[in-house]
Write a protein that binds this DNA or RNA. Structure first.
Lengths: 319, 319
DNA sequence: ATGAAAGCGCTAACAA
DNA sequence: TTGTTAGCGCTTTCAT
């Protein structure tokens, strides 16, 4: 800026005014400054500007589990769009379900003085964010509740989703209903399992632990579990990776058992057999979180809110 | 930092040393400082640190077309991983195929003094980056070449991919071969089309413009084009959205025409009929770009390279 | 309408 | 080993 000022024969402050589009500057001077800026290839240092003004950095952070996963990619897309509408740049970081990494990344984001944070929690304690939050850093938890910090939260009705799905299975006369899930260590899995169990209990069905299979981490192990549990008349899969594996195995065996899966997925309508998904609007989920965040950044000081989005059942697959 | 120094009864510089893990400080003092840091909830301002040290900001920028697209999400995942391995945070931004937005975003990223840039070009002229590049900002173009700037570039063998695919169709005796594409405005589409035409020309087939259909933007319009061109014995789809639409229409009609599509996609192996994809390793593509970038950031001053990744043909679908 | 001086929070260079 | 001083590039405050 000093160089630009020298070249344009004005003071540093005038350059600053021009760069910031301040109206209080003579057009002629402004033109000279613009010229000098172009000649020198000057580009304002946003870091220095944010440092001095102490105001906002026009940056927000998004912490998700894994960006390559379509669910999180969709979320990132919506948050990026919203950020863009607010002339804000977006840091994206992935915790990979690791609470240690989560804390490291969140601390780093704070150190870069982001204006706000959207977090899909990997860990259970976010107390380390409290001092920042108290100083005015807005935090929104997405898809899972955070811990040790009162903050805005946007969730899915996980429990209601499986409850409704299992009720439909029961209404269809199915009694031997297996549930396949990843890990009860994850909030959404616990909720979804609870919803299924609520529906089973309400129908007076005895709890059969042999029909609840945890540790199904990928499509292949889902297929293996389905192969093993062949005397079942309906399978409930608590995420779409499990659903895909189960589906493949059912097709392979030519089984006509019912299949109910949480999460819709791309091309589900082209799958080779009929099944039911518990679907929801991922974009809306992210939109709510992003809007909440930018409302906070704009100064909304009302009490933190928790919003819960509905799910609905959709028939998928060919035939 | 001043407050921490006061509280710990040391100088500001000592705090700085502790925060930066400098070894030249007595354990006892360091402990006092740590304590003060914890009590005050101090967190080092990374912006100020980067400003003063004038060194790197430990930040890179990734500019893609659209983060919600699985191709770009995969790329973002790999770049994020690599960035993480270098203790670097990642800005992700989407140009949405708009050159104006691309320039705005890239300028903004430069203003935030990123250490490097990975760009999937939307526009044709990146001359506006030249001054930054000359000052030492590393830029890597990914998936498409950039314009007006000599920089590292990582591409796919688009032309060779369709050429090989169409050659296989020809070897199978197919003669009426239709090509469906989005827009020749996009580099990859032009290359893929050229590859198909090279193979057709080499086989001595006359060029039939009626069999080349541009402007196929989504699965539905692909389906419509397939419905219209029913006297064809093979369809070549230049991206996976088109492939999915064509596939659906072929299944609907019970057609046994051949289908060849550029890009593999998730669950392609579960599609209800056989077809061929021109596949490639998206992660490897991104990995090369990210490694190139971090090598430059680490000081690699060799002449800019262009790397081209191979494609291969894979049979997909059930039956 | 324009400019001079101070200082944002930190680190480099030097001194003690 | 620890502290002092200057200054990164910018914006603020206050003067002109």
């Amino acid at each position: 800026m000093v160089d630009v000022a020298k070249r344009a024969g004005v003071s540093l402050k005038t350059v600053s005014r021009v760069v910031n589009g301040s109206p209080q500057v003579q057009p002629e001077l402004a033109a000279r400054v613009q010229e000098a800026i172009a000649e020198l290839g000057f580009r304002r240092n946003h870091l220095a500007s944010a440092l001095r003004s102490g105001q906002q950095t026009a940056t927000v952070g998004l912490l998700i589990e894994e960006i390559a996963n379509p669910f999180y990619a969709t979320i990132a897309g919506v948050v990026a769009e919203t950020a863009r509408a607010h002339d804000t740049l977006l840091f994206t970081a992935s915790s990979e379900e690791d609470p240690v990494r989560e804390e490291l990344l969140l601390r780093d984001l704070c150190a870069r003085r982001v204006d706000g944070l959207i977090v899909v929690p990997a860990g259970y304690d976010h107390g380390f964010l409290r001092s920042e939050a108290e100083r005015g850093l807005p935090v929104v938890f997405l898809d899972r509740p955070g811990g040790g910090l009162v903050a805005d939260t946007v969730l899915l009705d996980n429990r209601g989703g499986t409850r409704a799905g299992v009720e439909r299975l029961l209404a269809g006369g199915h009694r031997r209903i297996a549930v396949l899930l990843d890990s009860v260590g994850v909030y959404t899995m616990r909720e979804r399992l609870a919803g299924a169990q609520e529906a089973l209990a309400a129908a007076g069905l005895p709890y059969d632990p042999a029909l609840v299979r945890e540790g199904v981490k990928d499509p292949d192990s889902a297929a293996a579990v389905v192969a093993e549990l062949s005397d079942v008349d309906a399978y409930v899969c608590l995420n779409n990776r499990i659903t895909v594996g189960a589906l493949q195995e059912l097709v392979r065996r030519g089984s006509d058992a019912e299949l109910l899966g949480f999460d819709d997925f791309e091309l589900s309508y082209l799958m080779p057999r009929r099944f039911t998904v518990i679907a929801y609007d991922t974009r809306e989920l992210a939109r709510r979180a992003a809007e909440l965040l930018f409302a906070r950044i704009a100064g909304d000081k009302t009490w933190p809110r928790t919003e819960v989005l509905p799910t609905h059942l959709i028939e998928r697959g060919l035939r």
